[in-house]
Structures are given as C-alpha cells and as structure tokens.
Design a binder for these strands. Structure first.
Lengths: 111, 111
DNA sequence: TTGACATATGAAAATATTTAAATATAATCA
DNA sequence: TGATTATATTTAAATATTTTCATATGTCAA
C-alpha cells in the first residue's frame, strides 16, 4: 500500500461501489427494518433468484451485510446500520439536485 | 420510469457510481478547498493527463462538479458541497469497519 | 498567422460488472 | 433413501469501466 490515505480512499471506493446499484440499494431498503430471508427479498426486489444471490454476495464481500442459515432459509442482516446514514444523506443530496434540475427545465421552457 | 422510487434509486446509484473510484475521491479532496485548475489537479492526483480528464468528465456528467474556462486553463468546482457530508460519513463508516477488522485479526492471532 | 500550451476527445486493449440459464449444494421431509 | 425446497455457484454473453496513446480543439503570444 502506497500510503495510509490511498488505502482509505480505496476502502471508501469499495464501499461506494458495493452500494452503487439500484438493486442493491433496494435490497438494503428491505433489510433496513431488520434481518430478512432471501425468500422475502426476491419478491421485494422482483428480480431473478440467481441475480439477487449475486448482488447479495457483493454486499456481503464488501462487509455491508452478513448472513446466517436457518434450516433451508438464509437470513441476511445489515452489519452496521450506520450505512443508512450514508444512504439518507445521499438521498437528500439527490432530491435537492433533481429539484434544481427541474427548476432549470421550467425556466428554459418559459423562454 | 417504472415508478418514482426506482427513479430515485437509479439517481442515487448514479451518484454513488460517480464517486466510487479512488482517483475521483482524490480529485474531490483537492476541490474541497475551492475551485481549482486542472493543472493543479493533475500533479495532486499524480496520474496521466487524459486519465484525469476522463475522470473529471465522469464527475461532471454526474453533476457533482462543473467547470469554467479561464484563458488556457480550465477550473473545476464542486457544485454542491454537501457531497462532502456523504464522503465524511462514509469515512467514519470505513474507519470503524477497518478498526473492527483489525481487532478481529488480533484476536485470531492470539489463538 | 504560426507556434506553443492546456485540456478534451477518440480509439483500442484489458478488465470488471451485470444478467440469465443451467446446475450444484445443503437441509428437510415423506 | 429419495424427493423437494431454498439458495449458491458456474458459465457465457452483453455491456461498462479503466487506462493509455494518439490526436483534436481552443486560447494566447510572438
């Protein structure tokens, strides 16, 4: 590792990368209210089973979620709920910028 | 757009994607203290000129930065500084999880 | 106007991500 | 045991990202 800071930048980028997909954000939305069985996640996100499994693996490898077998089922759970602080502030940020964009469009339409 | 929420999820994922690269995080680190010429960014991040230019374009397309020509130079600037709230919380999150990981390793070494 | 300079763009190669289909695994139940 | 169920893994195709090299663009100065 070149130096401490570049290691942290890489770690940050890895977490961002793991979060950066609509399906994975939706999975986390579902997990926000507590541990949940894959069998509930699949209908919630409405995607192929194997695809959901891949995305869950990406979240797990990034250390964002962990899982546990319960009989036939596998239950996933968020490791550190502070990940939602990131997602929430991101939400405000995005809403704000969408608002600005739509105002701009309105203004352009007026002319 | 299927529905409002999926549009927002996509918008969130786009911003995350634009942030999810060590070089782009480093560029933003530089821009945090104010508008900055590309000619200062390049030595700061220590990468190829054309590569930096590509990454700046990614940040610009995501609406995270904007730019302005000043003579021969191009100056970039962060559009909404709240993007650093996201990055800062991410930083705390990552530090925390690195700490936990190193404690785990220590514990394993003891056994 | 020509040349030098700062930056952007395009193209190509290497690599990574996403998706779906098929198959494997592991746990339960008849 | 053998069938069934829930989930993971493998594979392959399509697509996207990253990097570098070569070239283009636009601005200034002589």
């Amino acid at each position: 590792m070149e130096n401490k800071n570049s290691g942290i930048l890489r770690a940050k980028a890895e977490v961002l990368n793991a979060l950066a997909h609509p399906l994975r954000l939706k999975i986390l939305e579902k997990l926000r209210s507590g541990p949940c069985c894959v069998c509930k996640i699949i209908p919630y996100v409405n995607a192929e089973q194997s695809n959901v499994s891949h995305h869950l693996a990406i979240l797990k490898n990034a250390g964002i979620v962990r899982c546990e077998k319960k009989g036939l089922e596998v239950w996933y759970e968020v490791v550190d709920y502070r990940v939602f602080e990131i997602i929430d502030i991101l939400g405000e940020y995005v809403i704000e910028s969408l608002k600005k964009k739509s105002e701009l469009l309105k203004e352009m339409a007026r002319k």
